[in-house]
């Protein structure tokens, strides 16, 4: 699970988290056994549909200001290390 969440855990952390998450999931047993077949799953407090705005040009965020927050940039792009397995 840690791998899917892009986290690395020490062996001690694995032990602690396993116990803690187990107790949280055990508490959720009170809803696991309920027969809720007829109920519509609720993802949001109110029914919302796609919201559109008029297709007119409005000011957007400043590019340079956004890039200034990145750990590394090059030629107006976010820069990261190697993506593919082999070095170029």
């Amino acid at each position: 699970m840690a791998g899917l969440a892009r986290l690395e855990l020490s062996p001690e952390e694995v032990e602690t988290y396993t116990a803690q998450l187990g107790s949280i999931l055990a508490h959720a047993d009170d809803i696991a056994g309920l027969d809720l077949g007829g109920l519509e799953p609720m993802a949001h407090p109110f029914d919302i549909e796609n919201v559109f705005r008029p297709d007119t040009v409005t000011p957007s965020l400043e590019r340079d200001e956004l890039l200034s927050q990145a750990p590394d940039v090059e030629r107006n792009r976010f820069k990261v290390g190697r993506i593919l397995g082999e070095a170029p």
């Binding site: 809803i31 309920l34 809720l36 109920l39 609720m42 993802a43």
Partner: peptide, 8 residues
């Protein structure tokens, strides 16, 4: 199941 419980 949690989403259905939210509805409940």
């Amino acid at each position: 199941q949690a989403q259905k419980t939210r509805r409940l």
